[in-house]
């Protein structure tokens, strides 16, 4: 890896995506690894990210890509890639709470193990390979509460408020109980 990076003059490297979105993300601690079928396989795709990039954004982008690409033939990929997108959005947008990274990983394994074809079997790789290397990055997104609803409670009351023509304090809900 280091040889290729030197040859192409890459500096300030954060990590590499080898083998496209369905391949492996490696960190800048692993540049002694080899481009080979036995180590890091690729059909030719080699993406270099510098330190101005955000790892969660990368995983997020690829995960959305797979949810969009799923043909929908089998249940684990059809529903799973869309659930994965939702779950990652929840964490990245700061609505995750304790247990949400565990749930994320459980979902990844289910999609990987049970999908019918290679798309589903690799769709969770962006999350799995970054989660393996940067678990603290995912954990640090989580709120320090045991549970948070997956949607905005107050926004969900908007239609009811309009119908009742109310906007007083009693017509609003806090997302979490403030203790």
């Amino acid at each position: 890896m280091q040889e290729i990076l030197t040859d192409c003059g890459a500096e300030d490297v954060l990590g590499l995506q080898i083998g496209g979105p369905s391949g492996t993300f490696i960190s800048n601690q692993e540049f002694d690894r080899k481009l080979a079928f036995e180590d890091l396989a690729t059909g030719g795709s080699f993406i270099v990210f510098n330190n101005s990039r955000n790892i969660l954004d990368i995983a997020h982008n690829f995960t959305h890509f797979f949810a969009h690409e799923s043909c929908g033939f089998c249940t684990p990929c059809r529903v799973g890639t869309s659930l994965l997108k939702k779950q990652l959005d929840k964490i990245v947008e700061g609505h995750g709470s304790a247990g949400d990274v565990v749930a994320l990983e459980e979902l990844c394994q289910l999609i990987k193990t049970h999908s019918h074809c290679g798309l589903g079997q690799t769709a969770a790789n962006p999350v799995l390979t970054t989660l393996e290397r940067y678990p603290e990055l995912y954990q640090s997104q989580l709120k320090l509460i045991s549970y948070e609803p997956g949607f905005d409670l107050d926004a969900a009351l908007e239609t009811a408020r309009r119908m009742a023509n109310r906007d007083d304090a009693g017509a609003h809900l806090a997302q979490i109980d403030v203790e």
Binding site: T75, P76, R78, V79, G80, L83, L110, T113, H114
Partner: peptide
Amino acid sequence: DDRKLITQMLFVE
């Protein structure tokens, strides 16, 4: 366990 999760996927979909 996995079959149950797949069934749950069908329910929420």
